[in-house]
């Protein structure tokens, strides 16, 4: 937690509210700290990279993008609490327990395909995944 606080301080100049809400930005900082911590704990070789080089910011920085970002945030928030229990359970495993789809499938004793389809259904409800032809309308 201390490390996350320090990173938030260190990176605060790069935070842009038009690209992501503060909580989403803090989530990404916390996630990256966790990845760094796991890499340090594992006995794998030295990674010649800073974890932050893996991540890209959303493109736009305009009032329209801010509005889209807010609309998408609201949609995610309102849908998340209404997801069927089994869909929410897998999303929590992925995001809060740090389990990949394969690990969640082993832990829940479900086929990998079932885990993937539950996540896909949840993301479609939140309009995170949409058919490519409609992507620009939703963005």
């Amino acid at each position: 937690m201390q490390e996350v606080m320090i990173k938030v301080w260190q990176k605060s100049a790069s935070y842009n509210p038009a690209k992501a809400s503060a909580t989403t930005w803090i989530y990404t900082v916390a996630r990256n700290c966790r990845i760094d911590m796991l890499r340090r704990k594992s006995n794998t070789q030295y990674l010649p990279l800073e974890n932050e080089y893996f991540w890209h910011e959303a493109d736009e920085d305009t009032p329209v993008s801010l509005m889209r970002q807010k609309r998408s945030e609201d949609k995610v928030q309102s849908c998340l609490s209404r997801l069927p229990k089994e869909q929410g359970e897998i999303l929590r495993k992925v995001y809060l327990e740090g389990k990949s789809h394969a690990e969640a499938s082993n832990e829940l004793g479900l086929p990998l395909g079932t885990v993937k389809s539950r996540v896909r259904l949840a993301l479609q409800k939140m309009q995170i995944l949409v058919a490519p032809e409609f992507r620009d309308e939703v963005l």
Partner: peptide, 27 residues
């Protein structure tokens, strides 16, 4: 995936929305 994101604005935006899921669950 990161190399693909460099070229693909659709997936960058999709990732932002996925990060919003993570942030809401963290809250």
């Amino acid at each position: 995936v990161s190399a693909h994101l460099h070229f693909c604005s659709q997936c960058r935006n999709e990732l932002l929305r996925l990060d919003q899921v993570g942030s809401n669950l963290m809250s």
